[in-house]
Structures are given as structure tokens and as C-alpha cells.
């Protein structure tokens, strides 16, 4: 099973991870903001993650770590 973790405080909410995710489970959390004032990226369904790391590959800010 794959696990995606976010260094939320570094996220700028650009959403490039959201576009990259083939399972559409990485999204921008519109309901809250991080310390920088951005809506951070989150994963909605950890169990559905296939560990492709597309989100991390697309992230310009080194926010995401993927484990399998």
C-alpha cells in the first residue's frame, strides 16, 4: 500500500499535483489555509493511492514524499 505525505507548510497551493494525479485523489483543500496563507494540497483517499509519485514529480516545492 502506498502512502503520500505532505510538508504542508511548504505548499503554495499551485495545484500541479492535482493535475498530475491519475486517481484524482490529490486535491487542493479549499476549506483551510497553511502558515503561508495558501490552500494546501491533501490526499482524499490514501487507500486508493497507487504510489505512482506523479504528484511529487510535478510538485515544484518539494512538498510531497511517497512511500510504498
Amino acid at each position: 500500500m502506498a502512502k503520500v505525505t505532505f510538508r504542508e507548510e511548504r505548499c503554495k497551493g499551485c495545484g500541479l499535483c492535482e493535475i498530475a494525479c491519475p486517481k484524482k485523489i490529490v486535491v487542493i483543500a479549499k476549506d483551510r489555509i497553511n502558515q503561508k496563507g495558501y490552500h494546501p494540497a491533501i490526499i482524499t483517499d490514501q487507500d486508493a493511492c497507487i504510489g505512482c509519485a506523479f504528484c511529487a514529480t510535478s510538485c515544484p516545492d518539494l512538498v510531497i514524499t511517497v512511500e510504498k
Binding site: 502506498a2 511548504r10 503554495k12 497551493g13 499551485c14 495545484g15 500541479l16 495558501y38 504510489g51 509519485a53 511529487a56 514529480t57 515544484p60 516545492d61 518539494l62 510531497i64 514524499t65 511517497v66 512511500e67 510504498k68
Partner: peptide
């Protein structure tokens, strides 16, 4: 880990704009 931060970068947050 299938994807983790490379040691080729320091841990300084980038100053670049979102996206």
C-alpha cells in the same frame, strides 16, 4: 520511499511563485 527529497538540494524553501 519511492519519492523523497534529493540530497542535491538544501532544505531552503524556494522563493519562486506558486506553480
Amino acid at each position: 520511499e519511492v519519492f523523497k527529497k534529493t540530497n542535491g538540494l538544501t532544505d531552503a524553501p524556494f522563493h519562486y511563485c506558486p506553480g
